[in-house]
Design a binder for these strands. Structure first.
Lengths: 137, 137
DNA sequence: CTCTCTGCAAAATTTTTGCACTGCT
DNA sequence: AGCAGTGCAAAAATTTTGCAGAGAG
């Protein structure tokens, strides 16, 4: 990591507050790709005055400075992920959990798609759906 | 097409109403992957009494009988597509339009991912993002 | 003629915004 | 001390639901 979250906030003109650090750390500490509400509930015990509005405002900043990614698997709300390395996601159609998929992107296919559609593609998000190991039993 | 929309509705115990046919036909007639609101506005002139609730209820039925797909590119609302063949989507980050991508899925990679994650994968949704030909000029 | 469907309005959800007070720098 | 940030509550936006009257089978 070349630049930590504190420096990054400061360098972008944002103040460093306990809430912002707590939200980012909570996101880093989990693999469950929580929604805003989930983060809020998880932080309530430690930060009793924390509000949902602050969670959303902080998420917005973290998005802007590129420290988190937003997922949308087709649920009614967004999920967030502090893992910003190139990876995809798989969601269990039974229990709803979301796991990571580390699989390299096929660059040849990408070129073909660019030619086919006329788009200059800068990003891709892949969502797989199926039954997780636990729900398969 | 082995079974048309009228038969399919009837065979699944749903009544065939002008609203349902209109919504499905509107979806078939467009390539722009509209949201519920867009469909509603488009149908207003022809069906002045059409309500947004009916659009949502009909979309729900069409989803259940497998006649439409739901897309979510990370916008605040869902988009719908009557093209249920296996294909993916690309969205322009400038103008927001959504186009189709017809590119075969790499089955080998899929097997690898199943082994890696322990999931039995039944579906995948791929969203590409970039600048469309028009916005690239 | 029955029973589902429609359409209105109200409710539920998720996310955003306004504003006085707090607290980072 | 100055000014952005927090937290509350209210607003906005999307989707769902309840119910009385309309219409398909």
């Amino acid at each position: 990591m070349t630049e930590n979250i504190t420096e990054l906030l400061r360098n972008n003109g944002y103040k460093v507050t306990p809430q912002r650090l707590a939200i980012y750390e909570a996101l880093c500490a989990t693999k469950e790709h929580p929604k805003a509400e989930t983060l809020f509930v998880k932080l309530q015990p430690t930060y009793p005055t924390m509000s949902l509005a602050t969670v959303y405002k902080t998420i917005d900043i973290l998005k802007k400075i590129g420290k988190i990614r937003v997922l949308n698997t087709g649920e009614d709300s967004f999920r967030y992920d502090a893992d910003i390395t190139s990876h995809h996601h798989v969601q269990c159609t039974v229990c709803g959990r979301v796991d990571d998929v580390y699989e390299a992107v096929d660059q040849k296919a990408l070129k073909k798609i660019e030619k086919q559609t006329g788009y200059t593609i800068t990003e891709q998000r892949v969502y797989f759906f199926g039954k997780c190991a636990k729900c398969n039993k």
